[in-house]
């Protein structure tokens, strides 16, 4: 595909970027709301996480005495790292803002940079809980990164393209004809779903709602954050969730607009698909207890082997 830019593409790319950033807290809120409904609670407002973000911005920051420059820069770095990955996703319009950057290896390693700074942040305040979270974060990242790379490389081999934008361009164009397997996207989706749960600190790997310092992962890392920094961390986690959900929605059924006319339909479908995955995640979270910490490798190894099988199949040219 042609990835050269003109003003229209750039403008629409920026528009798409802003829309998916703005939607990110909504999906996180939707999952929360659905989970509460499954429990028989009335639940929060679906837009609650926007209010939370606003409230956190209005609050002042309390910074630890021990904090160095890492505490001040890393929230912004993490936010921009996740933003740039989100900006690569052709969520509903093919020429995404950073479509040129969307090489598969770059995506995985850029996400890794986010984890790197997150764990540095966790160690910066000299709090025991932060390090506990950082250790577990790396533990799960290490287990899930090979699967993530395998998933992306499978997609690349499957479509014989190296960039995310071209990959989904290929899948969409060939979805209805040609030699096209539904087995590979299906099993990739299983693997990606497990990874999405683990990377976004969801049950059964982590419990996002707990107050127990000793069992949590993501929340333990940002335990010392307050005010706008906490707000940035929260927003970054919504964006990360959005990245994974968008990937899933693209793999299962890509419908991406090429011209401005198609955008409304594609946007509608995008929101619908995302809501579907939110629903699925909330069901999984309601039906499963949190795993024991050292049982998680079982689940993640299954994700790895499934993506490996997908890769073998894609190399065979199924």
């Amino acid at each position: 595909m042609d990835i050269s830019l003109n003003y229209e593409k750039l403008l629409l790319g920026i528009l798409q970027f802003i829309i998916i950033i703005a939607l990110a807290p909504f999906f996180a809120g939707l999952i929360h709301k659905l989970k509460q409904n499954f429990r028989g609670q009335k639940g929060i407002n679906m837009f609650q996480f926007y209010f939370n973000f606003g409230k956190l911005l209005r609050k002042g920051v309390v910074l630890s005495d021990e904090a160095s420059y890492i505490s001040i820069i890393s929230p912004y770095i993490i936010l921009s790292v996740y933003l740039i990955v989100l900006g690569m996703m052709p969520a509903f319009y093919i020429y995404s803002l950073f479509s040129r950057l969307s090489d598969i290896i770059v995506i995985v390693y850029t996400l890794g940079a986010g984890v790197f700074f997150l764990t540095l942040y966790s160690l910066d305040q000299g709090s025991p809980f932060g390090g506990l979270g950082g250790e577990r974060e790396w533990f799960f990242t290490m287990l899930s990164e090979p699967s993530l790379i395998f998933i992306f490389i499978t997609l690349a081999i499957y479509s014989r393209k190296g960039m995310l934008v071209s990959i989904f361009d290929f899948i969409q164009k060939n979805a209805l004809g040609g030699h096209f397997s539904i087995a590979i996207p299906f099993i990739l989706l299983i693997s990606l779903f497990i990874l999405g749960l683990s990377e976004n600190a969801r049950i059964p790997i982590d419990n996002p709602e707990t107050h127990l310092e000793l069992t949590m992962i993501h929340e333990a890392i940002i335990l010392e954050a307050s005010g706008k920094y906490l707000g940035i961390f929260e927003y970054s986690s919504y964006i990360k969730l959005s990245i994974f959900l968008t990937l899933m929605s693209l793999i299962i059924f890509p419908y991406i607009a090429y011209t401005p006319i198609d955008i409304p339909l594609a946007l509608g479908l995008y929101i619908f698909k995302m809501a579907m995955f939110c629903f699925m995640i909330s069901i999984v979270e309601s039906l499963n207890p949190k795993m024991r910490l050292f049982r998680a490798p079982n689940l993640l190894s299954i994700a790895f082997i499934i993506s490996l099988i997908a890769m073998i199949l894609s190399i065979r040219g199924v």
Binding site: L57, R58, K59, G60, V61, V62, L63, S64, D65, A67, G227, K228, G231
Partner: peptide, 8 residues
């Protein structure tokens, strides 16, 4: 945002 910063 509120840019007040306090160290503790």
């Amino acid at each position: 945002s509120n840019n007040s910063l306090r160290r503790y």
